[in-house]
Amino acid sequence: MDINRRKFFGVLGTAGLASTLSGSPVGAWESKAKSDAYGCLVDLTRCTGCRKCEEACNEVNGLPEPEADFEDATVFEQQRRPGGRAYTVVNRYFSGQREDGEPVPTFVKTQCMHCQDPACVSACMTGAMYKAENGAVVYDVSKCVGCRYCMVACPFEIPGYEYDSALNPRVMKCQFCFDRVSREGKLPACAGACPVEAITFGRRKDLLGLAKERKAEDPGRYVDHIYGEHEAGGTNWIYISGVSFSKLGFPSVPERPMPRATESIQHSLFNYMWSPIVLFAILGGLMYMNKQKNKESADSQHQRPRRET
C-alpha cells in the first residue's frame, strides 16, 4: 500500500513539474502581436505639461468631471495615476537643475501602453479585454464580471476600477480611441490635441524608426533607451526622453512578454485536457486494483477482519 501512496505523489509531482518546467523555456509559446499595429511615440523632451491631452481624452470618452480644472497647475504637486476617473494623466518630475538653480521639469503623460502581448488580455476569464486588429487593447464591458484580474496582471499598473458603482462598475483604461481611429479615421483624441507635437500617431514600425532618427539627429538630447521597444515584449505606445525613465515614475518591466510563463503552463498542461484525462485514467486504474485487493483480503480467512461497516 505504501507503493500506492508513492505512486500517487509521483503522479502529482510529475504533473506539477511538467507544468512548471514548461513555464521557463520559450517552448511552443507564440506572440500574438499584430504585424501592422498602430501606436504612438511620446517625446518627453517636447511635452510642456499643458494637459490638453487630458482634457481631450476626458471629453471624447465622456469621463467624469475632474476635481480640479484642466488649467490648474497645482495638480502637479502630487503624483497622479490613471484610474477610475481618467484614462490618461500628466505628471511633473523635477529631473535636473538649470545653472541658476531653477529646477527643470519633465512632464510625463501616462496611459495604457497597448502591449503587443497584453497581460490583461491573457488574464481575462471571459475575453472582455481583447486585442483589436489595429493593435489597440479594447474592453468590452458586456463580457466583464468585474474580477479585476486584469488589474493584477498589468505590469504597467494601468487599468482602474469604478469602485463607487454598486451595480455596474467598469474597468477603466485607455482604448486608444478605437472607434475614432478605426471607424472615423481620426487621430486619438490626445494626439490630436497636443499643441507641441509631443505625441506622434502612426504604425509602430514607423514610430520606432522615427524615434531612432530623432535620437541619431540629436544624441545629446535623449537617453539611449526607447521605453516600450522591448518592455513586456514590446508596446505600441513608445517613449523617448532626455532623462532616465527610472527617474520619471516608469515602472521597471522585464523584456519578456508577461503572458508567456502562465500561458506556457496552461497550454502545456491543459491542451486537449490531456493531463486531467491521464490523471483520471491512472487514478481509476489504482482504484480498481485496490478494490480487487480489498475484496481478496476480505475473502481470505487469514486476514484480520476488515474495518468496514
Binding site: 471571459t126 472582455a128 464580471v145 455596474n168
Partner: peptide, 24 residues
C-alpha cells in the same frame, strides 16, 4: 460578492478564455 458585477457571475460559462488561469 467580491466581483464588481455580481449579477454577471455566469458569464465565464458562456465566454471562454483558455489562456486565463483564472478561467480554469
Amino acid at each position: 460578492f467580491d466581483i464588481g458585477r455580481s449579477w454577471a457571475f455566469w458569464k465565464p460559462l458562456v465566454y471562454h478564455n483558455a489562456s486565463s488561469a483564472l478561467f480554469e
